[in-house]
Design a protein around this nucleic acid. Sequence first.
DNA 1: ATTGACATGAGGTACGTACCTCAAATAGCG
DNA 2: CGCTATTTGAGGTACGTACCTCATGTCAAT
Lengths: 342, 342
Amino acid sequence: MPRPTVNDLAKMAGVSLATVDRVLNARPGVREKTVRRVNLAIETLGYVRDVTAANLARQRSYRLVFVLPDAPVQFVSTLREAIAESLKSSVADRTEAKIVTFSNGNPHALVKSLRALDASDTDGVAIFAPETPHVRDAIARLKADGIPIVALVSDLPNTGRDHFVGIDNIAAGRTAGFLMGKFIGNTSGSVMVLVSSMQARDNVERRLGFDQVMAGSFPQVDVLPSLENHDDEDVTTRLITDMLRDRPDIVGIYAVGHGSRALVNVLRDHERREAIILIGHELTQVTRDALREDLMDAVISQNVGHIVRSAFRVLRAKSDGLDIFSAQERIRIEIVVRENLI
Amino acid sequence: MPRPTVNDLAKMAGVSLATVDRVLNARPGVREKTVRRVNLAIETLGYVRDVTAANLARQRSYRLVFVLPDAPVQFVSTLREAIAESLKSSVADRTEAKIVTFSNGNPHALVKSLRALDASDTDGVAIFAPETPHVRDAIARLKADGIPIVALVSDLPNTGRDHFVGIDNIAAGRTAGFLMGKFIGNTSGSVMVLVSSMQARDNVERRLGFDQVMAGSFPQVDVLPSLENHDDEDVTTRLITDMLRDRPDIVGIYAVGHGSRALVNVLRDHERREAIILIGHELTQVTRDALREDLMDAVISQNVGHIVRSAFRVLRAKSDGLDIFSAQERIRIEIVVRENLI
DNA sequence: ATTGACATGAGGTACGTACCTCAAATAGCG
DNA sequence: CGCTATTTGAGGTACGTACCTCATGTCAAT
């Protein structure tokens, strides 16, 4: 019992192949009654369109665009590599993608990049950007053009984006809080929180989740106000150095942003390194090394490979007007410690 | 510049389509010199075979078999569901799979099931079974028949299996040990270890990893000898109840096996539940609930969806005589706590 | 009953590859 | 040189679907 084909449908519904084709591809010119007959045949035979044959016939290809910041943190380059990697194995999927980079500090550059995109040569856009009014407008224009959009890593909920690919950042912050509390144990003291920017929605959400858990489950620990570093290593170095000097009661540091290099470097040479629990985000060479050295205690991470593959699947589906299996597209919050480092 | 096709190759190499086809499919009757010409064209044009078109033409389908125990633990049924789920979305991949179940206690049943498989109607086999001499022989016969084999979840290293799909269980045990030590903190006491069977290689490896880390990094904690429960809930209940009664110094329990139901049930009603760190394996309804109730502190898990999809990919590749990207097939050791429960 | 709008059928070509047959060209051999 | 064995070319069909054209069928309003 091989898979039923369009010919089986035609036979069963008592119509011609052309009519089946019209129904399957929602082309006009078929009576409602006939449509029902064909749909009945589809259901009873359990017909599923052979997507590969369909794409072959249709000469369909998906032209996707990834819009990424040029932030000097390893996470972004890891994301770039994952896109390149995914692209390699996706020649078979008739998918091509290009990466557009925008300068992190310059919102106009981003908007200009987005304006350059056109429905005639792009089938979908994935964006990793902060949620500013400029971005909102540019995305609204793309949507008006009928281009599917997914937000990547950091959500853009008020822009009309079709989907968000990334972790639940509140839960990620809660997870960081849970581990921080458990690792600190019944010692009391203060925890420092370092964010990259209060503009970045993912950072804000993580901080929120972190505070929820710390206040709820570990009240003996005092969580200090956020220090903003704008992904600048010099700023980070100064902030951390000052804080560690002035506050001997620090027992933990939570690095909310995507970069941890400067932080790790300062801590490596600090006398109290053993006594301070360090938890950060994103698995990169920096955090990997820090875990191995026992300098970091845990890293909360999102698998960039999964993110990129999910973005591809979602954009292809949206571009075909298909639904997605949301359950399958959920990105897990990964906890990485010294021992489960791959 | 669309993808080059076989016709472009023929044109470039100055040969006919038939010759290109002979070279691509390694058919005989082509001079060495001509083969080189075609291969040169392949490289310079960057030709990649359109696998979907090829499969369409070839009418290729993959008939896979999953061999699973009937152990009464939720993990196995989760695995079953994941296979069914994967199968749904894999109609497009021309892949069909059936599940063969063998009775856990009866090695002959397993061997009989394996004997029934034949190269004429199966293109690959995935096996989740303990490593016994019977199993070894049966697998050797399948291999001799030319059927690709992957071991699932628990490795079968001395059977000639083509690949192992699952986590590094030593690292998984080490991860459990790391968390156990960190969560216990500087309290001293004893940790109970519950395994399902010393025959199951994954259990043995996890125990090994656990001991490595406990001895190396947390020497103040005393790790007790393994208690075997053979996946029997009554046995588990008795073992735990007795141990908790006799040893008030227990500060942690590590459940090595795939099932945790009985253990969780005993602990739920125990007076010292707050004081005992409980770490187990595999995310199921039982362990999910236990995490939510703060009864379990962490679960080390392997994503069954990933495992099944990886098994599919590997078997398809092996069946086509292709290589696999081992890096892409690595299954991560997931740490799940209350807060990153999906 | 005629007209026109719409519904359907029949048949074709195409996508990129696999695989087949048969004839023709070429190479290697004595 | 001729002979045979091997290599190559030409052309076909097939896979399952998309999409096109043109002819014919049906139906309701006039």
